[in-house]
């Protein structure tokens, strides 16, 4: 009985009906079945944060969730947040601050940063560092990322840096 299981869910607002093997995790489902390769795979054991996506509004590690568990769920990926414009300002801040180099951590980092900003409009640098502390970036040293998130928070509050 390791046969495929039927799942229905929405991904970035689009209805998806699929047959998935139970062992398939959400990251691989998004990447290999739906072609949404913006959700990256870095460690596959829940430590690096590269596969961070939103399920029913909460950020989760897509490698630590089975695709079958997302039956009836709403999944949002970096492609969806980009197309809707939800993180356009955050992306602009990352660009202006060169808060990405190789870009591999960036989708997950943006997901985590947006999650923080939705919960806390005025995070200080320590809070930003803490909220992003499960997302590994080998390139930047984090400083520029913290700057970009801080600048976005300020701008969303209508304040000048």
């Amino acid at each position: 009985m390791t046969a495929p299981v039927a799942v229905s869910l929405t991904v970035n607002g689009e209805r998806i009906d699929a047959q998935v093997l139970p062992r398939l995790n959400l990251a691989d489902f998004l990447r290999e079945h739906l072609g949404l390769t913006g959700t990256h795979v870095g460690c596959e054991h829940g430590v690096c944060g590269a596969c961070t996506v939103r399920v029913d509004g909460d950020i989760v590690r897509a490698c630590l969730l089975l695709a079958v568990q997302t039956h009836n769920a709403s999944v949002e990926t970096i492609e969806g947040l980009s197309d809707s414009g939800e993180v356009a300002d955050l992306q602009a801040a990352f660009c202006n601050r060169n808060a990405l180099q190789c870009g591999y951590c960036t989708p997950g980092m943006l997901m985590a940063a947006q999650d923080l900003l939705r919960q806390n409009a005025a995070p200080d640098r320590a809070q930003i560092r803490e909220h992003l502390s499960g997302n590994y970036c080998r390139c930047t040293g984090y400083h520029a990322i913290i700057d970009a998130v801080e600048a976005t928070a300020l701008a969303r509050r209508g304040e000048q840096p």
Binding site: D58, I59, V60, R61, S133, G134
Partner: peptide, 9 residues
Amino acid sequence: VAHPAIRNK
């Protein structure tokens, strides 16, 4: 306990 994305699940 871990990080926000883990605590959400």
